[in-house]
Simulated assay, not measured.
Amino acid sequence: MNKIYFDSLNRIFNSYKSGKSICLCRYSKFVLLIFGILLEKKIINNFYIININNKIYIICLINKLLSLKFYSKPSFKNYIKYKKINFNLLNQGLVLVTTNIGILTINDCKKVKIGGKILFSII
């Protein structure tokens, strides 16, 4: 699961850097949740689920993406407690955290007073 979201975000970032506004990503429910948040924050324009030769893919239309930083990689997991959420993390753009209640932004984690695994940040 972790490798699929990692690969999908890398594909989006590399497509945007090469001047393309469309990207083909592998399907997973976890990636759909992340894309829903990215769509809500207007980082991507839209995404579509397609079926090609009995394999499910996601086509993503990219809006704007300046930088992407992974905090937790498949080989290294970075967790944060609620009390350790500081001003620097809150002002780093969109930071996503996976918690026991789902995927939340770092601002939502501060409001709900819950910590979790930091996935990535997008500016």
Rank of each mutant, 00 (worst) to 15 (best):
K3P: 00
G116Y: 04
T98I: 14
N54Q: 11
I56W: 00
P74H: 04
N63K: 14
K69R: 14
L66I: 14
Y27D: 13
L24T: 10
K117Y: 00
G36M: 10
T98W: 01
I85S: 02
L94S: 09
I34Y: 02
I122V: 12
L89W: 07
I123K: 13
V31L: 06
L33D: 14
V112N: 05
N51A: 05
N14H: 06
I37P: 03
F70Y: 10
L94A: 11
V95L: 10
L94G: 04
G19A: 10
N10L: 13
I12G: 01
F30Y: 13
L68G: 02
F76L: 14
S15N: 14
N107Y: 10
L24Q: 06
V97C: 05
N2S: 09
Y48D: 15
S8I: 05
E40T: 11
F76Q: 12
K81F: 04
F120A: 11
R26P: 00
F30G: 01
G19D: 12
N10Y: 01
F30M: 11
L65S: 04
V97A: 03
G102M: 08
F76I: 15
N107H: 15
N54V: 04
S67D: 14
I56N: 13
S15P: 06
S72V: 10
L104A: 06
N91L: 12
S15H: 04
F87G: 00
I4C: 00
S75Q: 11
N91K: 14
Y48C: 03
N10G: 01
N88D: 11
F87D: 13
F47Y: 15
S67Y: 12
G116D: 06
L24F: 09
I106Q: 09
F35A: 09
K81A: 06
I122E: 02
K117T: 13
L24N: 11
F13L: 07
I4W: 03
K81Q: 07
N91I: 06
N86A: 05
K17H: 08
K20L: 15
K113M: 10
L119E: 04
L68V: 12
R11H: 03
F120T: 12
F30Q: 10
G93Q: 08
L24H: 04
L66W: 05
L38K: 00
I49K: 14
K41C: 06
K81V: 01
F35E: 03
K77R: 15
Y5L: 07
M1Y: 09
G93W: 05
I114K: 03
G19P: 07
S28Y: 07
E40Y: 10
C109G: 04
F30I: 13
L96V: 13
L32K: 14
T98S: 14
I4F: 05
I106C: 04
N100C: 10
L94E: 07
I80T: 08
V31R: 00
N107E: 11
I114H: 04
T99I: 00
S18I: 12
K84I: 02
L104W: 08
E40R: 14
N46L: 05
F76Y: 13
Y16D: 00
G116R: 11
